[in-house]
Design a protein around this nucleic acid. Structure first.
Lengths: 355, 355
DNA sequence: GTCGTGTGGGAAAGCGCTATCTCAGCCGTC
DNA sequence: GACGGCTGAGATAGCGCTTTCCCACACGAC
């Protein structure tokens, strides 16, 4: 095991004080030279300071800066599940956009647990982040909502900015996602392909995203005079394994004359397709499948999965923009939202139905 | 657009000072009550402080604590690509383990650019993180390696701890991944299934991971007296699109009598399978395919992909443990490494070859 | 020559904490 | 009953920075 090379003495990082001494200037001048304050500083001094900083390998202590300035450069990001491609794509967008603004992002994982989410929000508040972005797992009728709102309100009153990705009832900025209209569009397109008998693999009914996608899908079908029978709405977990399990149960209970099943997100759809195969059914041929989100891998499964594209990285970026925008109004929210609109992508998993 | 509810006046977060005043005790007592120092504090006082803190919604300012204590509770994590399932799984592991220790993790993305990585390391040093974990894109003969080593050495000399995931030449703690032996095992197993003529889709030759996996694969084949002809080593990018493109080129150039292609990681394998299909070839039947990493989605593609399982979340956890361990020695590194050993998982994409 | 008026460096007062130090108050001891 | 030793609360000196505030100096105007 390498142990950090030759046993050079352990020291403390160079401080601004060291730099100032090295450059033969005052602390104030050093500070001004290195961070570009309003005040001008003599070019010669400035160069001396920069040289000294380079020589000493000085890096400003961000914590100290945050304390002195009273504002941090941190963005706190809360997601349900980091390893889920949906969230990791959003995270990539947030991190990318944050980098452009020289902001640092800290991440935590709620594991889809409202209790835990609340604790994490509280803990993250300690970082005094400039922005907090909450993504995933808004639920309807969440008993923790009151506490969460209180926590976030307190946070905003002390200068922070909370932003939700996707709908929330809470009075904070929200980047609305086109869950409802995307699902509606999907329903209409599927109908256009000749499908008439639908089923859906849905998440917990309290999950906001579930609700919106199911409602949108139902709306779309209603617009063409179709209704999904209740017994073809399979409730399961909002994950790959949930999709697998839901489909397995659905097959066991009897598919009836179902032509296509709408899995509420792509990872569920992928699990569902595996369940079909394990039951001897060929997705796309024996039963069509559609997903939602259009995560990258759906191009590489067989049959390629029909889905509703959400520009996930874009969503992450826009969420941060929305948070940072000092005076975001309805118009800018609408603009941001337009920038993250959805698009139905028909692929082989939902072939045109022969008449 | 919701604007933070009723226009309550914006204030600053409650400070320890406020709590102390509210509780009628000194700053010192408040601090001691809230963070459990060595010193005991009268139970009655302690309760008063806790009550005051709760009443005021106090959260300790982590930056201030870091400054005062001289040590932060931050873990800095550097990955090549957050949205890549390989890295997002590792990240999930790190974040999970960090949470157990009440550490905060900050993330940044190198985008596989050594220059950028160096800059990021420098920038992250400003956070004075307790630990820095670097994952992905170690390259051989990297001209930035010297600068990176200098930067990290300086970092460690000032009390930090740098850890690399996967091999590195640099003199820092490293969680070795079984890239070489995993690939070797895979080669042997494939041979056992009857395969004799191999090709590989590899990454940039300077990429350490590429090197190790290719070398291991070659070793495994050599052990059964087989050699991969140079013209069947297709060099491409280490991404899904790289896999697609490499396979497309390979097919165009003529597969020859190749029986199986080893894609150096799963996302490449998935891209490669799509390229095969687009060229009218059926993976597993016309040409077998194997990947590496065993990311979750390979269970859901068709045919299911043969791969080498790396416990990615585990790897993230172990990397953090290794960093935090005050006196990690060769033995503990070996233990950590053993905990993240690989396993070949044969699936349908590499059916037994009929004699 | 005197007085504004800039200009820009340096001293120093914080920022919100922690940890050292000081010092009452209390117990036990001979 | 005076004193040492302990306990634990409070005052305070930092931590590494930023940002006032002060002031010396130079310049132009009258």
């Amino acid at each position: 095991m390498a142990e950090g090379g030759p046993q050079t003495r352990r020291s403390t990082p160079a401080t601004l004080h060291d730099v100032a001494r090295e450059a033969g200037v005052s602390l104030a001048t050093a500070s001004r030279s290195l961070n570009g304050s309003v005040r001008k500083v003599n070019e010669e001094y400035r160069e001396r300071v920069l040289a000294a900083a380079a020589k000493l390998g000085y890096t400003p202590n961000l914590s100290a800066q945050a304390v002195a300035r009273g504002t941090s450069t941190t963005v706190a990001l809360l997601v349900a599940d980091i390893a889920d491609p949906y969230f990791s794509s959003i995270a990539a967008g947030v991190v990318g956009a944050a980098g452009d603004d020289r902001l640092i992002v800290t991440m935590a994982e709620t594991k889809r647990d409202a209790e835990r989410e609340l604790e994490l929000v509280r803990a993250m508040r300690g970082q005094r982040p400039r922005v907090m972005i909450l993504s995933g797992s808004r639920t309807i009728g969440d008993p923790n909502a009151v506490a969460l709102e209180a926590e976030l309100t307190a946070y905003e009153q002390t200068g922070g900015r909370a932003v939700f990705i996707s709908e929330s009832d809470l009075p904070f900025r929200t980047l609305p996602l086109a869950n409802r209209s995307g699902a509606r569009d999907l329903a209409v397109e599927l109908h256009g392909l000749g499908y008439r008998r639908f089923a859906a693999l849905t998440g917990p009914e309290t999950l906001r995203t579930t609700h919106d996608r199911v409602a949108g899908f139902a709306e779309g079908l209603a617009s063409v005079g179709i209704r999904v029978p209740d017994d073809r709405l399979v409730r399961t977990a909002f994950t790959r394994d949930g999709g697998y399990d839901g489909m397995r149960r659905f097959i066991e209970a009897g598919l009836g004359d179902t032509q296509v099943v709408f899995a509420l997100n792509d990872v569920m759809a992928m699990g569902a397709m595996s369940a079909m195969r394990d039951a001897g059914l060929e997705p796309g041929r024996d039963l069509a499948v559609a997903g939602f989100d259009d995560i990258p891998t759906v191009r590489d499964v067989t049959p390629r999965l029909t889905s509703v594209r959400m520009p996930l990285e874009r969503i992450g970026e826009q969420a941060l923009r929305l948070a940072l925008d000092d005076e975001a109004d309805a118009a800018s929210a609408r603009a941001a939202s337009a920038d993250v609109s959805t698009e139905v992508v028909i692929r082989e998993s939902t072939p045109r139905v022969e008449a």
